[in-house]
C-alpha cells in the first residue's frame, strides 16, 4: 500500500529524532554508574547528587544570567531593526539588513575566535558579560527574523488610526503596536533564551573562569562516574524546555484568539 511506506518512514524518523532523548530519563533513574542495558533498578539518587555540585550551581547561575540578558538585549535590538526594516525606506537598507543577518550563517567558531582576539587585543578581561555580548550577536538575527514577520503582518493603518485619533507616536507604539506584536516578542525572547542556554563554542572561548552549563557538562564528561548525574541534569533541562514551549504556545494561541488573527503556525 502506498500510505504504508510513508507511515513507516515517519515512524523511523521520529525514533531517530527522539530515541536519544528518551534514553536520558531512563538512565537518569537507573541505579548504575555504567550507561548500558539491562537496567539495574529505580533510583533518584542522581538527582539528589546534583544538589551537591557547587560548580554546577555556579554554571547554571551563569547560564541563566547570560541567557536572560542576551535574549532581552537581542529582542530589544531586534524590535528596532525589524521596525526599521518593515516601516522605513533608507539608502543601503538591503546591504545593512544583510550584514545584520549574516551571523546566522557565519560559522560560530569564527565569530567566537574573532571576538576573542578583539577582546584580548584591547585588553578586556573575559567574564560573563563578554559571553552576553557574543550571544547577543548570534541571537539578534533570529530575533530580527521572528520580529520582522510580526511587524510585517501588522496593518500600517492601525498605527495611523491611533495617531489620527490624537495619540502621540510613542503612545501609539505602546497602545497599538506593542500589544499586537507581543506574540512575536515572546517568541523572540524564548528562541534567543534557548539558543543562548545551550550555546557552547562562544561560551567556551569567551567565558574565562566563569563556566556556563554546556561548558560544565562538557568538562564533566571526562569523569565516567559523573555521567548519570549529567543524565539527570539533562532530564530536568528537557522537562523545563517542554514546559517553557508549552507556556509560550498557550500564550501565543490565546493572543491569536483575542485578536482573531489567522494561525500562521507556531512552535507546537
Amino acid at each position: 500500500m502506498k500510505g504504508q511506506g510513508l507511515r513507516l518512514y515517519a515512524i523511523l524518523y521520529l525514533i531517530f529524532l527522539y530515541a536519544p532523548i528518551v534514553l536520558l530519563p531512563i538512565f537518569a533513574f537507573n541505579d548504575a554508574t555504567i550507561i548500558s542495558f539491562p537496567l539495574r533498578g529505580f533510583t533518584t539518587k542522581w538527582f539528589a547528587a546534583l544538589a551537591d555540585l557547587p560548580t554546577l550551581h555556579l554554571a547554571l547561575k551563569n547560564s541563566l544570567i547570560i541567557a536572560v540578558s542576551s535574549s532581552v538585549l537581542a529582542t530589544t535590538l531586534g524590535i528596532f531593526a525589524a521596525r526599521a526594516s518593515t516601516r522605513y525606506e533608507f539608502p543601503g537598507k538591503g546591504g545593512l539588513m544583510g550584514l545584520i543577518m549574516l551571523p546566522l550563517v557565519l560559522p560560530e567558531v569564527i565569530v567566537a575566535m574573532s571576538l576573542l582576539m578583539v577582546l584580548l587585543g584591547i585588553g578586556i578581561d573575559l567574564a560573563i558579560w563578554t559571553v552576553i555580548l557574543g550571544h547577543t550577536l548570534i541571537c539578534t538575527p533570529f530575533a530580527i527574523a521572528i520580529l520582522s514577520a510580526a511587524f510585517q503582518s501588522l496593518d500600517k493603518s492601525l498605527e495611523e488610526a491611533a495617531y489620527d485619533l490624537g495619540e502621540s507616536k510613542l503612545s501609539t507604539f505602546r497602545l497599538i503596536t506593542l500589544p499586537l506584536v507581543m506574540p512575536g516578542i515572546i517568541s523572540s525572547l524564548l528562541i534567543s533564551f534557548t539558543i543562548s542556554l545551550d550555546e557552547f563554542i562562544i561560551a567556551f572561548f569567551l567565558a574565562g573562569s566563569e563556566p556556563t552549563l554546556p561548558v560544565y557538562i562538557y568538562s564533566q564528561l571526562r569523569f565516567p562516574k559523573q555521567i548519570p548525574a549529567i543524565m539527570a541534569l539533562g532530564t530536568i533541562l528537557v522537562a523545563l524546555s517542554v514546559l517553557l514551549l508549552t507556556i509560550a504556545e498557550y500564550f501565543r494561541r490565546r493572543g491569536l484568539k483575542k485578536t482573531g488573527a489567522k494561525d500562521t503556525g507556531g512552535f507546537l
Binding site: S157, A161, L165, L180
Partner: peptide, 13 residues
C-alpha cells in the same frame, strides 16, 4: 480631521 480607513483599522485587541 478624523479618518475612516479602507481596511477600517479596527484595533483587534
Amino acid at each position: 480631521t478624523n479618518m475612516v480607513f479602507q481596511s477600517y483599522a479596527i484595533f483587534p485587541h
